[in-house]
């Protein structure tokens, strides 16, 4: 894909290639700076959640769900996944990321291939189960909508559909891959 777009650009506007790349890199840098600030707040909060023992309680609460979905038996990992899921549900995608990365590190078995649990976590995050699409509502209000929040119900229904579909598909693929492996 990259080679194709590069060759197409050489054909159409060769002088723009470097500009585009550097521009994107500086966007990435600006985003990283912003993320650094966001993560500082959330990792700080997370530390309090963890030290106060609240994360253990949350993990215990979500344990049946996590066990069913991920088939793991490790308290630390369960804790990170529980926090990642709760942050997602609250619509805090950026707060979910550092916890997701921590969970990923613990799920990694070093084989270079994604384990079923890793795939499940990626798909769950990629289908974004969330209760309040805050950014979208804010944008709609800014654009002069009469009732900016009336998309909550359809969004909720749609996100529940995609999330459950994701879970079902991952489970299905797992089985299929296992059978093919044998």
């Amino acid at each position: 894909m990259i080679v194709a777009s590069l060759s197409l650009l050489v054909w159409t506007s060769p002088s723009n290639i470097l500009n585009t790349m550097v521009g994107a890199a500086s966007d990435a840098f600006a985003l990283s700076l912003e993320l650094c600030a966001v993560y500082a707040v959330w990792l700080g909060i997370l530390e309090i959640v963890e030290v106060s023992g609240l994360s253990d309680k949350l993990a215990k609460l979500l344990k049946p769900v996590i066990k069913k979905l991920f088939k793991i038996d490790d308290v630390e990992t369960e804790k990170f996944i529980a926090l990642n899921m709760s942050a997602n549900i609250l619509g805090l995608g950026n707060a979910a990321t550092p916890m997701g990365i921590n969970a990923m590190k613990r799920l990694d078995d070093g084989s270079g291939e994604a384990t079923p649990a890793i795939i499940m976590l990626i798909v769950l995050n990629a289908t974004s189960l969330q209760l309040l699409p805050t950014t979208v509502i804010g944008l709609r209000a800014a654009a002069g909508s009469q009732s900016p929040a009336d998309i909550i119900l359809p969004t909720l229904l749609a996100t529940i559909c995609t999330c459950s579909l994701g879970i079902i598909l991952v489970k299905f693929c797992q089985r299929w891959f296992k059978r093919r492996g044998k």
């Binding site: 990365i101 990923m104 590190k105 990694d108 070093g110 270079g112 795939i119 976590l121």
Partner: peptide, 11 residues
């Protein structure tokens, strides 16, 4: 998400 792991194949 996978940047800090050794995962290369995402299946």
């Amino acid at each position: 998400y996978i940047s800090q792991t050794k995962v290369k194949k995402l299946l």
